[in-house]
Computed example of a mutant assay.
Amino acid sequence: MTALTHDFPFDPTYGYTLDTLLAVPGPGGAPDDFDAFWRGRYEAARAVETRPELGPLVEERDGVRIFEVSYASVGGVRLGGWLALPVEGRAEHGFVIGHGYGGRDQAGPDVPLPLPRSAAILPCVRGMVERGLVDGVPSVSAEHVLHGIESRETYVIGECVADLWCAASALLELVPELGESVASGEGLGYLGESFGGGLGALALPWDERFAAGELTVPTFGNHPLRLTLDCIGSGAAVRAYRETHPEVVDVLRYFDAATAATRITKPVLVAAALFDPSVPPPGQFAVHNSLAGGGELTVLEAGHFDFPGKDAALAELAAAKGEFFGRVLK
Rank of each mutant, 00 (worst) to 15 (best):
R39A: 06
F307S: 08
E177T: 13
Y14G: 03
L79G: 07
A168Q: 13
R242Q: 12
A286E: 10
R51H: 14
W206A: 07
F34I: 00
F67P: 05
G295R: 02
L215I: 06
R263Q: 12
V129S: 14
T20H: 12
V268E: 03
A23K: 10
G132N: 00
G75F: 15
V238G: 09
K310G: 09
H147F: 11
L229R: 04
D230Y: 11
G28L: 12
I157Q: 03
G100W: 08
P31I: 04
D11H: 05
A3Q: 11
G303P: 10
A30R: 12
M1Y: 15
Y241E: 00
E296I: 04
A47R: 15
Y190A: 02
P224R: 03
R46G: 15
Y16H: 13
E208H: 15
H147L: 04
A72T: 04
A292D: 08
T154S: 14
S278I: 06
E296G: 04
L252W: 09
R239G: 01
R51N: 14
P246T: 00
L204Y: 05
I149F: 06
R65I: 11
A170Q: 00
A257P: 04
L85V: 15
G189D: 03
V287W: 05
A84C: 15
G196H: 03
E88Y: 10
L227P: 07
K266S: 07
G185S: 11
K266G: 05
A318Y: 14
G189P: 11
V125G: 10
L229C: 06
P138A: 05
C160V: 02
L204W: 06
G98W: 07
G40C: 05
E59W: 11
S151D: 03
A240D: 14
G127R: 00
E68R: 15
P109R: 09
L83D: 01
D105G: 11
A273K: 00
P112I: 13
R131S: 01
V58D: 00
L178A: 09
K330W: 06
